[in-house]
Simulated scan of single mutants.
Amino acid sequence: MHDQNSDSVNSKPARLREVAEAAGVSLITASRALSNPSLVSAATIARVQQAVELTGYIPNLLAGGLKSKRSLMVAGLVPAISVAQFLPTVQALTSALDDAGYQLILGQSGYDHAREGALLDTMMSRRPDGIVVTGLVHSPAARERLRRSGIPVVETWDLNDRPIDMLVGFSHQKVGEAVAEYFLSKGWKKLGIATGDDHRAMLRRKGFVATLGRDVPTAIVPAPSSMALGRLAFAELLDKEPGLQAVCCSSDTLAQGVQIEAQSRGLRIPQDLAICGFGGAEFAAHMQPSLTTVQIDGAEIGRLAVRLILQRCRGEKVEHPIIDVGFQIVERHSTVAPDPAHR
């Protein structure tokens, strides 16, 4: 009996020769139209592209990459794609790489160092033209394997004077110090911290506490943080310090949960409780009241990471392999009550 699906299941993928025949061009012209379009006319490119769609041809980028020593692929590693603060970086990476003819392949570590190492090994085995990591790679073994691979690596969203290769980020400890100084300038005494348990968030807590010169009540939640975890964190903080005046949060999402929980308990923001987030998420400006946050230019981090990788791919010397993009505290109504005359 003939299986109606057997033809589609067993059919062979279209070859470049079939594309050339469908387009009415030579094999080498079809190859140039797909791999080096600057060598052929726009009309020829259009005919070849139409033939590609007609035949269902999928270019073998691996074979082409072996000849050119380029995969035209950059691997990106993020803790979790759901974290709002990382989205501008991912979007900028995707856009800037696409403009240069590269594609971004993304992996999620889930804030798990063991999983991060396994993902990096898989990425290296595919021989990408570059690897972009959110944060620092903490495993000494993984760092050494990346160095030996010869693949351009950009660590991001953190700062270190000894990166694996290149780095675009900022100091989390300085963020914590700056937020503490901001809180002190407001005269608040009863402070709390709602934070994720990841390394970068704990660095910010360290800077905050060091600047205060004393410890403060802290609610630690598993990363990635969420609005629900923010509500739980604030409830925990109130148990520890019923007279809280201000809360420093490790993410805008966590701060959103803190604010909702506070309002559900009848607290006014910021008159009864001031709140500061981190990350500069787009929604922070549209909360009611709007959320004070530590703004990070995540898109610029992505663009700079691509620039460094492309420089290395072109064989150019990278003059500044470590770039500190800094940060700024964007003050909004969650820490400063609006002037009644301008409401």
Score class of each variant (00 low, 15 high):
residue 17 R to H: 11
residue 37 P to V: 09
residue 61 L to G: 12
residue 141 A to H: 07
residue 137 V to C: 15
residue 233 A to H: 01
residue 29 T to P: 12
residue 147 R to V: 12
residue 37 P to H: 02
residue 47 R to I: 06
residue 6 S to D: 12
residue 45 I to H: 03
residue 79 P to Q: 02
residue 134 T to N: 12
residue 62 L to A: 15
residue 287 M to H: 05
residue 8 S to V: 14
residue 284 A to M: 10
residue 203 L to A: 15
residue 1 M to A: 15
residue 278 F to T: 12
residue 253 T to W: 01
residue 76 G to P: 07
residue 340 P to K: 01
residue 16 L to S: 08
residue 238 L to P: 13
residue 18 E to N: 07
residue 24 G to R: 06
residue 317 K to E: 12
residue 303 R to K: 11
residue 251 S to T: 10
residue 340 P to A: 10
residue 210 A to P: 08
residue 95 S to E: 13
residue 283 F to L: 08
residue 119 L to Q: 00
residue 15 R to T: 11
residue 217 P to K: 08
residue 138 H to M: 10
residue 6 S to N: 05
residue 280 G to R: 00
residue 205 R to H: 07
residue 9 V to C: 10
residue 48 V to T: 06
residue 20 A to K: 04
residue 301 I to R: 00
residue 169 G to F: 06
residue 226 S to D: 04
residue 225 S to V: 12
residue 196 G to W: 00
residue 152 P to D: 00
residue 250 S to L: 07
residue 180 A to N: 05
residue 342 H to E: 09
residue 212 L to N: 01
residue 73 M to L: 15
residue 227 M to T: 14
residue 4 Q to M: 15
residue 296 I to P: 08
residue 229 L to G: 03
residue 188 W to G: 11
residue 181 E to G: 13
residue 30 A to H: 02
residue 70 R to G: 08
residue 93 L to A: 09
residue 64 G to D: 02
residue 101 G to H: 02
residue 76 G to D: 05
residue 45 I to E: 02
residue 141 A to W: 04
residue 56 G to K: 03
residue 159 L to I: 08
residue 121 D to F: 07
residue 11 S to P: 10
residue 86 F to E: 02
residue 58 I to R: 05
residue 70 R to D: 06
residue 213 G to M: 13
residue 59 P to L: 11
residue 341 A to D: 05
residue 288 Q to I: 14
residue 111 Y to S: 05
residue 205 R to C: 15
residue 58 I to K: 04
residue 246 A to W: 03
residue 216 V to D: 00
residue 244 L to R: 02
residue 188 W to E: 02
residue 28 I to T: 12
residue 58 I to S: 13
residue 208 F to C: 12
residue 149 S to W: 04
residue 168 V to F: 06
residue 310 L to W: 03
residue 84 A to T: 09
residue 105 I to P: 05
residue 341 A to E: 02
residue 314 R to F: 09
residue 107 G to N: 04
residue 231 R to T: 07
residue 142 A to R: 02
residue 175 V to S: 08
residue 87 L to V: 15
residue 17 R to W: 03
residue 84 A to V: 13
residue 152 P to H: 01
residue 24 G to D: 07
residue 109 S to W: 02
residue 61 L to R: 10
residue 28 I to Q: 13
residue 258 V to D: 00
residue 292 T to N: 03
residue 125 S to A: 15
residue 303 R to L: 14
residue 21 E to F: 07
residue 101 G to I: 08
residue 327 F to S: 15
residue 201 A to W: 00
residue 231 R to W: 01
residue 292 T to Q: 04
residue 159 L to A: 10
residue 69 K to A: 15
residue 238 L to N: 10
residue 249 C to P: 04
residue 190 K to E: 12
residue 157 W to K: 00
residue 40 V to A: 07
residue 332 R to G: 14
residue 170 F to D: 00
residue 49 Q to E: 14
